[in-house]
């Protein structure tokens, strides 16, 4: 661990052993309890005016994402256009928070988004596995930023984390943060691979201690992506981290969130766990693609009073 990394916040663990002690000293998480709490929050009934308000907020929180081998400039341009005007038929519909693409697609997206206020995020650091030498990861990051990305979604080395080499993961995040420069750093924990809630809590704190601006659940490329209890746990982590160190960190669930109903459950979760301070696109994002169209359909239902159909919304 580097001295520069640890000097940013006071009271940080300053050796690998300390870091381990710190992370393992965090309170445990009871699986049944946290899942029950997340499910209970999911039973909140959000109707009428609250629903309209929630849908617009959710749209503004979307990181509209395409991360396919088949991505082309044409696809990315279309997606970026949609990010700016999700519902061409309704000018009151807000833009999304960001477009999220592979580094190679950053210049294409940047050309569309420049000056719009919609952020441009790029996955870097040998996404999704993270299995590459550090220099490659750093170069990946610097390229993306140089090409116009103002947000970097990095992956942690889950292998190192599961092997107990927390300092390795910490140092990588610090290095990527430095390479990302002014860009905001989202740290993907890949919670589906961390397997236990205790690990998710530790990884969340590890990422925040190392300087993450956001902690993000998943790449979307493994079997288990964002789940309500995992997101709840990460919201608790950012809440507790700010209370302890005074620095606010954002949360981004990604993968598997497809419906308005699901999105609203997450908003309820923020509302009742962290409160108003996180109810903003600066502090909460949905990593999603198909979610946006469902939000738009529900939005139209509320404004027109009848149910909407998919043919009336653009595919991307």
């Amino acid at each position: 661990m580097t001295a520069t990394a640890t000097s940013r916040l006071s009271g940080l663990p300053d050796s690998p052993a300390d870091l381990r002690t710190f992370l393992h000293g965090l309170p445990g998480v009871d699986k049944v309890g946290i899942e029950a709490r997340a499910a209970a929050l999911g039973t909140r009934s959000v109707k009428t005016t609250s629903k309209a308000q929630a849908i617009d907020l959710a749209i503004r929180m979307v990181d509209l994402t395409t991360l396919e081998g088949a991505d082309t400039p044409g696809k990315v341009r279309a997606l970026s256009a949609k990010a700016l005007r999700p519902d061409p038929a309704d000018p009151t519909c807000p833009p999304v928070a960001a477009v999220c693409v592979y580094p190679a697609m950053v210049p294409t997206a940047a050309a569309v988004l420049a000056g719009s206020g919609v952020h441009l995020a790029s996955v870097a650091t040998a996404f999704p596995s993270g299995q590459a030498p550090l220099e490659v990861k750093l170069a990946d990051t610097r390229n993306a930023v140089a090409d116009g990305a103002d947000e970097i979604d990095m992956v942690i080395s889950r292998g190192a984390f599961l092997a107990g080499d927390y300092a390795h993961v910490f140092d990588e995040i610090v290095a990527v943060k430095e390479a990302a420069g002014p860009a905001h750093l989202k740290v993907i924990l890949e919670t589906g691979e961390l397997a236990t809630y205790d690990n998710v809590r530790r990884a969340s704190w590890l990422a925040m201690l190392a300087g993450a601006d956001f902690i993000k659940t998943s790449t979307g490329k493994v079997g288990v992506n964002a789940t309500p209890p995992v997101t709840l746990l990460m919201l608790e982590a950012v809440r507790d981290f700010r209370e302890r160190y005074g620095r606010q960190v954002g949360v981004k669930p990604a993968g598997g969130i497809r419906t308005t109903k699901d999105a609203i459950k997450y908003l309820v979760m923020i509302n009742e766990t962290c409160g108003d301070d996180w109810l903003h696109p600066d502090w909460f994002r949905f990593g999603a693609s198909s979610l946006l169209n469902d939000l738009l359909m529900q939005r139209t239902k509320l404004t027109t009073g009848h149910y909407a159909g998919p043919d009336y919304f653009t595919l991307d």
Binding site: R44, S45, V46, K47, K51, Q53, A54, N271, G275, D276
Partner: peptide
């Protein structure tokens, strides 16, 4: 008043 109020859902 919170940013996110739930409308009555009787």
């Amino acid at each position: 008043m919170s940013l996110f109020e739930y409308a009555p859902a009787p």
